[in-house]
Amino acid sequence: MLRSLALLTVATLALAPRAAAGVGDTPSYTFRQPPVNAMGVKSLEDLRGKPVLVDFWGTR
Protein backbone atom coordinates (compact mmCIF):
# COMPACT_ATOMS: atom_id res chain seq x y z
CA MET A 1 0.00 0.00 0.00
CA LEU A 2 2.74 2.42 1.04
CA ARG A 3 4.75 1.47 -2.05
CA SER A 4 1.74 2.17 -4.30
CA LEU A 5 1.24 5.54 -2.67
CA ALA A 6 4.89 6.39 -3.14
CA LEU A 7 4.73 5.40 -6.81
CA LEU A 8 1.55 7.43 -7.27
CA THR A 9 3.22 10.46 -5.69
CA VAL A 10 6.25 10.15 -7.96
CA ALA A 11 4.00 9.79 -11.03
CA THR A 12 1.90 12.79 -10.00
CA LEU A 13 4.99 14.94 -9.48
CA ALA A 14 6.34 13.91 -12.86
CA LEU A 15 3.12 14.98 -14.57
CA ALA A 16 2.69 18.20 -12.59
CA PRO A 17 3.24 21.52 -14.40
CA ARG A 18 6.75 22.94 -14.17
CA ALA A 19 7.44 25.05 -11.11
CA ALA A 20 6.45 28.66 -11.68
CA ALA A 21 9.19 30.68 -13.31
CA GLY A 22 9.61 34.29 -12.35
CA VAL A 23 12.11 37.10 -12.01
CA GLY A 24 15.57 35.66 -11.47
CA ASP A 25 14.80 32.32 -13.10
CA THR A 26 16.41 31.16 -16.36
CA PRO A 27 13.68 29.28 -18.21
CA SER A 28 14.47 26.72 -20.86
CA TYR A 29 11.87 25.98 -23.51
CA THR A 30 11.72 24.31 -26.91
CA PHE A 31 8.60 25.11 -28.90
CA ARG A 32 6.55 22.05 -29.89
CA GLN A 33 5.51 23.89 -33.05
CA PRO A 34 7.71 26.72 -34.37
CA PRO A 35 6.09 30.11 -33.73
CA VAL A 36 4.55 32.00 -36.63
CA ASN A 37 7.36 34.00 -38.28
CA ALA A 38 9.92 31.88 -36.37
CA MET A 39 12.62 32.18 -39.04
CA GLY A 40 14.43 29.18 -37.62
CA VAL A 41 13.95 29.96 -33.93
CA LYS A 42 13.01 26.71 -32.18
CA SER A 43 13.69 27.48 -28.53
CA LEU A 44 14.38 30.25 -26.03
CA GLU A 45 18.02 29.12 -26.08
CA ASP A 46 18.22 30.05 -29.77
CA LEU A 47 17.70 33.66 -28.68
CA ARG A 48 20.48 33.79 -26.09
CA GLY A 49 22.67 36.84 -26.57
CA LYS A 50 19.81 39.25 -27.24
CA PRO A 51 16.99 40.48 -24.98
CA VAL A 52 13.59 38.87 -25.45
CA LEU A 53 10.33 40.64 -24.68
CA VAL A 54 7.51 38.16 -24.08
CA ASP A 55 4.02 39.64 -24.39
CA PHE A 56 1.26 37.40 -23.04
CA TRP A 57 -2.01 38.52 -24.62
CA GLY A 58 -5.46 37.35 -25.62
CA THR A 59 -7.67 37.74 -28.65
CA ARG A 60 -10.83 38.34 -26.61
Partner: peptide
Protein backbone atom coordinates in the same frame (compact mmCIF):
# COMPACT_ATOMS: atom_id res chain seq x y z
CA UNK B 1 7.67 29.43 -22.84
CA UNK B 2 7.34 29.92 -19.08
CA UNK B 3 4.33 30.44 -16.80
CA UNK B 4 2.60 33.75 -16.30
CA UNK B 5 2.74 35.14 -12.76
CA UNK B 6 -0.29 37.45 -12.65
CA UNK B 7 -4.01 36.82 -12.72
CA UNK B 8 -4.87 38.71 -15.86
CA UNK B 9 -3.74 39.84 -19.28
CA UNK B 10 -1.78 41.48 -20.67
CA UNK B 11 1.42 40.43 -18.97
CA UNK B 12 4.94 41.23 -20.08
CA UNK B 13 8.26 39.63 -19.29
CA UNK B 14 11.75 40.74 -20.23
CA UNK B 15 14.34 37.99 -20.62
CA UNK B 16 17.91 39.29 -20.47
CA UNK B 17 20.79 38.45 -22.80
CA UNK B 18 21.87 35.62 -20.48
CA UNK B 19 18.39 34.05 -20.52
Amino acid sequence: PFPTVGNGLPETALVGVDG
